[in-house]
Deep mutational scan, measured.
Amino acid sequence: KYSDMIVAAIQAEKNRAGSSRQSIQKYIKSHYKVGENADSQIKLSIKRLVTTGVLKQTKGVGASGSFRLA
């Protein structure tokens, strides 16, 4: 599940300011076997996790910027 992968990526990075979408994508692609549409799936999952309150956006708008666990 992409949401689990995103949470794992943010936990692994341990950046106080949060993790960027690009760094999350890079982590997921190197640690998991994902399909061609992974980028758009990650983007959608990040937006969903922010609206449900699992992630907090520290910089930027939408799916860009930095995110950390709430």
Rank of each mutant, 00 (worst) to 15 (best):
residue 1 K to Q: 09
residue 1 K to I: 10
residue 2 Y to S: 01
residue 2 Y to R: 01
residue 3 S to K: 10
residue 3 S to R: 11
residue 3 S to T: 13
residue 4 D to H: 12
residue 4 D to R: 12
residue 4 D to P: 06
residue 4 D to Q: 10
residue 5 M to C: 05
residue 5 M to N: 01
residue 6 I to E: 01
residue 6 I to V: 09
residue 6 I to G: 01
residue 7 V to G: 01
residue 7 V to Q: 04
residue 8 A to R: 07
residue 10 I to M: 05
residue 11 Q to T: 10
residue 11 Q to P: 00
residue 12 A to F: 06
residue 12 A to K: 04
residue 13 E to Q: 10
residue 13 E to R: 07
residue 13 E to L: 15
residue 13 E to C: 13
residue 14 K to W: 07
residue 14 K to A: 14
residue 14 K to S: 11
residue 15 N to H: 08
residue 15 N to F: 05
residue 16 R to M: 10
residue 16 R to Q: 10
residue 16 R to E: 12
residue 17 A to I: 08
residue 17 A to Y: 14
residue 17 A to Q: 12
residue 18 G to W: 06
residue 18 G to H: 04
residue 19 S to E: 02
residue 20 S to Q: 04
residue 21 R to D: 07
residue 21 R to V: 15
residue 21 R to T: 15
residue 22 Q to W: 09
residue 22 Q to P: 04
residue 23 S to W: 14
residue 23 S to V: 05
residue 24 I to N: 01
residue 24 I to Y: 00
residue 24 I to K: 01
residue 25 Q to T: 15
residue 25 Q to D: 06
residue 26 K to H: 09
residue 28 I to E: 15
residue 28 I to M: 03
residue 29 K to Q: 07
residue 29 K to G: 03
residue 30 S to A: 12
residue 30 S to I: 09
residue 30 S to R: 08
residue 31 H to A: 04
residue 31 H to E: 02
residue 31 H to P: 00
residue 31 H to Y: 05
residue 32 Y to R: 02
residue 33 K to P: 10
residue 33 K to I: 11
residue 33 K to Q: 11
residue 33 K to A: 11
residue 33 K to Y: 07
residue 34 V to I: 05
residue 34 V to F: 03
residue 35 G to T: 05
residue 36 E to L: 11
residue 37 N to L: 06
residue 38 A to G: 04
residue 38 A to M: 07
residue 39 D to Q: 06
residue 39 D to S: 07
residue 39 D to P: 05
residue 40 S to F: 13
residue 40 S to M: 14
residue 40 S to T: 12
residue 41 Q to R: 12
residue 42 I to Q: 01
residue 46 I to A: 02
residue 46 I to C: 03
residue 47 K to R: 11
residue 47 K to Y: 11
residue 48 R to K: 10
residue 48 R to I: 12
residue 48 R to M: 13
residue 49 L to Y: 00
residue 50 V to M: 04
residue 51 T to Y: 10
residue 51 T to W: 10
residue 53 G to N: 03
residue 54 V to L: 05
residue 54 V to W: 04
residue 55 L to K: 01
residue 55 L to G: 00
residue 55 L to V: 05
residue 55 L to E: 00
residue 56 K to Q: 10
residue 56 K to S: 08
residue 56 K to A: 08
residue 57 Q to W: 15
residue 57 Q to H: 11
residue 57 Q to D: 03
residue 57 Q to R: 10
residue 57 Q to A: 10
residue 58 T to R: 06
residue 58 T to V: 13
residue 59 K to H: 09
residue 59 K to V: 08
residue 60 G to F: 05
residue 60 G to K: 07
residue 60 G to S: 07
residue 61 V to Q: 11
residue 61 V to R: 14
residue 62 G to Q: 05
residue 63 A to E: 11
residue 63 A to V: 11
residue 69 L to P: 03
residue 69 L to N: 05
residue 69 L to C: 07
residue 69 L to I: 09
residue 70 A to S: 08
residue 70 A to H: 06
residue 70 A to G: 06
